[in-house]
């Protein structure tokens, strides 16, 4: 089976006053149709820039300098600006953290949805409106016909995010990229939307990349997980592998710092220090100054790329599952 999304060696650099900063460094992963890939990392790890890079949404001073992004076998990086625009929204869609980034505040939901439909598929306005109504139904919006007449400000935050997801679904894209799509929502609304997303992947066969800082969310939502640190994917595997038996000391550290995994009141195991600045990465492995397993080797040599099943970027990986 060919992957719906196959990212190979994606590298994005930013030109800053402090010199070149490699925000995304040789990132590779593939997502099969109907599967959800959780892309996890802390702030500054490059997870959002990876999402933007896939869609070719990087503006100066940033630039995608290397790599391929294959969607259904077509490399987005080889396409002209015009052809790429035809792919966005039709083959690859994105959902952002703030739905007001997607929605136009002065247009009724129905108007902007029909516009989005007719950009890629020539059909009558009334047909497009029917199509939009069905998309709203799919994401669990009650009385969708009425919502089509509403302006975005008349909807709650959760409802707006559903509309944004519905718009991403309009053309049944092969790939959906969601960047912190439920982070701003209340937990009860987040739960509802995550359940819808899971169903969506299962029913429509869309490949979903779910970008988040929240390990608990990916652990219950995703089939596969990539963990990012300082611009690189440091561990990649199925959710069971990465959560159940992490191989990278950083993943282990992240999982250990979750309070729910410990007796209440006990001291939490913590990763010392803080995430490094990308312009001043340490020698060798970027995680070595914070790593309990680091040796002299880690301080001089870039980390070893182990790719047998549960891939890990480390000289001294843990056992895993």
């Amino acid at each position: 089976m060919t992957a719906a999304l196959d990212v190979k060696g994606l590298t994005t650099r930013f030109e800053t006053r402090a010199g070149h900063v490699t925000a995304v460094n040789d990132v590779s992963f593939a997502v099969q149709p109907g599967r959800i890939m959780g892309l996890v990392g802390e702030s500054g790890s490059g997870k959002s820039v990876t999402g933007f890079s896939i869609l070719g949404l990087i503006d100066a001073p940033g630039e995608v300098t290397a790599g391929a992004v294959l969607v259904d076998g077509v490399d987005l990086r080889q396409l002209s600006t015009e052809d790429l625009r035809k792919m966005r929204g039709r083959k690859v869609a994105m959902v952002f953290q703030d739905p007001m980034m997607t929605l136009n505040p002065v247009l009724r939901v129905g108007d902007q949805m029909t516009m989005a439909v007719r950009v890629h598929q020539p059909m009558s306005k009334s047909d497009a409106l029917q199509h939009a109504r069905k998309a709203l139904e799919v994401v669990g919006i009650p009385s969708p016909a009425e919502r089509l007449k509403a302006y975005p400000h008349q909807l709650s935050g959760g409802m707006r995010q559903r509309v944004a997801i519905a718009m991403a679904l309009l053309h049944s894209p092969s790939v959906i990229i969601a960047d912190e799509a439920t982070t701003a929502l209340d937990v009860s609304i987040q739960g509802q939307i995550l359940a819808e997303v899971r169903e969506l992947a299962d029913e429509t066969g869309a490949a979903i990349v779910w970008i988040t800082h929240d390990l608990a969310v990916v652990s219950s939502l995703a089939d596969d997980i990539c963990v990012m640190y300082a611009g690189r994917i440091v561990e990649r595997g199925t959710a069971e592998q990465v959560i159940g038996g992490p191989r990278h000391p950083y993943t282990q550290g992240l999982l250990d710092s979750i309070p729910a995994r410990h007796e209440p009141g006990r001291k939490l195991p913590q990763i010392p220090g803080s995430t490094p600045q990308l312009s001043r990465l340490p020698e060798g492995c970027p995680f070595q100054p914070r790593c309990p397993r680091a040796t002299d080797l880690c301080r001089t040599e870039p980390p070893l790329d182990v790719r047998d099943g549960q891939a890990v970027l480390c000289h001294h990986p843990l056992e895993g599952v």
Binding site: S188, G191, A216, S220, A222
Partner: peptide
């Protein structure tokens, strides 16, 4: 109870969201 059920936790396995219906 509903709040506890709708919160994703690490390691409970895939796709278990017993969401609260409706909005606040």
């Amino acid at each position: 109870r509903a709040l506890f059920a709708s919160i994703p936790t690490v390691g409970t396995g895939r796709g278990r969201f017993e969401a609260i219906k409706g909005e606040i």
